[in-house]
């Protein structure tokens, strides 16, 4: 195994392990932090694979923005800091989730292993440079790029609109407590 391979394997193991902890942890904030680790490790994977701009975007957008957003959301929803057993779904659904997760992962892994086998490629570092990515985005991908910016704008406007106020007539009122809702 070469050096990049070792690095790649280590980062992949880190990403997978921290991802697993992120979805199984019993402390909400820890889960969010494990997600940070997982996403950061993924940025490292991208870097090894020669996609340096993608790795930077991953760090900037995901680790920098998305996770921060998640942590803000956790704060705003008064997520408990101590371990909670109310984070997971009921037992039956959890079992189904395990089966579904293993099935999806197994099927994908099987397909990919069958397709790639022990394929090795030379890392083409230069194609992931900011120059090449910038040229590609602003030439061939210009229209999707602009559409995406519109989408992003729409999403931001929608997020503000949704979270700004609660319509008075939709407020369920007294029936909240009957539902066992948190006060």
């Amino acid at each position: 195994m070469s050096g990049p391979d070792l690095l790649l394997t280590a980062l992949a193991l880190l990403a997978a392990a921290s991802g697993l902890l992120a979805v199984t942890g019993s402390r909400v904030v820890h889960c969010a932090l494990w997600l940070v680790v997982s996403l950061g490790a993924l940025a490292g994977v991208y870097l090894v694979l020669g996609a340096e701009v993608v790795a930077l975007v991953q760090l900037l957008v995901y680790v920098g923005a998305v996770v921060v957003l998640v942590i803000f959301a956790l704060m705003l929803t008064r997520a408990p800091v101590e371990p909670s057993d109310r984070l997971d779904a009921p037992k039956g659904q959890k079992l189904a989730a395990v089966v579904a997760g293993i099935s999806v992962g197994g099927i994908l892994a099987g397909t990919l292993i069958y397709a790639l086998q022990d394929l090795t490629v030379k890392v083409q570092g230069e194609q992931g440079s900011a120059r090449n990515i910038g040229r590609a985005v602003f030439s061939g991908w210009l229209l999707p790029f602009e559409l995406l910016s519109v989408l992003l704008l729409a999403a931001l406007v929608a997020a503000i609109a949704v979270s700004r106020h609660l319509p008075a007539e939709k407020r369920p009122g007294q029936s909240l407590t009957e539902d066992g809702g948190v006060q």
């Binding site: 779904a89 659904q93 189904a96 989730a97 089966v99 579904a100 099935s103 999806v104 099927i107």
Partner: peptide, 22 residues
């Protein structure tokens, strides 16, 4: 009425279809 419960069915269906296709 659980949204994630319905998602289980969707994914189980997807898995079944994939396996059947393979």
């Amino acid at each position: 009425g659980l949204a994630t419960g319905y998602a289980v069915w969707v994914l189980v269906g997807a898995v079944v279809l994939t396996v059947a296709g393979m």
